[in-house]
């Protein structure tokens, strides 16, 4: 049966870039056990002979013609940015000082 520890949930939260509080991690760890127990049922019928379906349509990759088309202006593209400078998205530092 599926079982997931609190440490595993904390690691998942780290991977998902969510800084969860301790009570949140406790609560979620207990819920995840229940949910995983329920969804693990898929394994009962997923035999090796069954091909997976990733999408309802039989898709082929589609390319558009390589021609210039109207698109957002820099001002429009930046209109929702939390911070901007010199027509660019301004973000917190991405490389640590000590790393």
């Amino acid at each position: 049966m599926a079982s997931i520890s609190r440490d595993e949930v904390a690691n998942l939260a780290r991977l998902a870039r969510i800084e969860m509080t301790e009570p949140e991690l406790d609560h979620l760890a207990s819920e995840m056990d229940l949910i995983l127990g329920a969804v693990a049922r898929v394994q009962e019928v997923a035999g090796a002979d069954v091909p997976p379906t990733s999408h309802p349509l039989a898709l082929q990759n589609i390319f558009r013609p390589d021609v210039v088309a109207p698109s957002l202006t820099p001002d429009e593209a930046l209109s929702g940015a939390p911070a901007q400078a010199d027509q660019r998205f301004k973000v917190p530092q991405i490389l640590g000082d000590a790393e």
């Binding site: 898929v42 997923a46 035999g47 069954v50 997976p52 379906t53």
Partner: peptide, 13 residues
């Protein structure tokens, strides 16, 4: 494989 992969197979079924 155990979770997402199996779910995709159920989708086929």
């Amino acid at each position: 494989d155990a979770y997402y992969g199996s779910a995709q197979k159920v989708r086929t079924l």
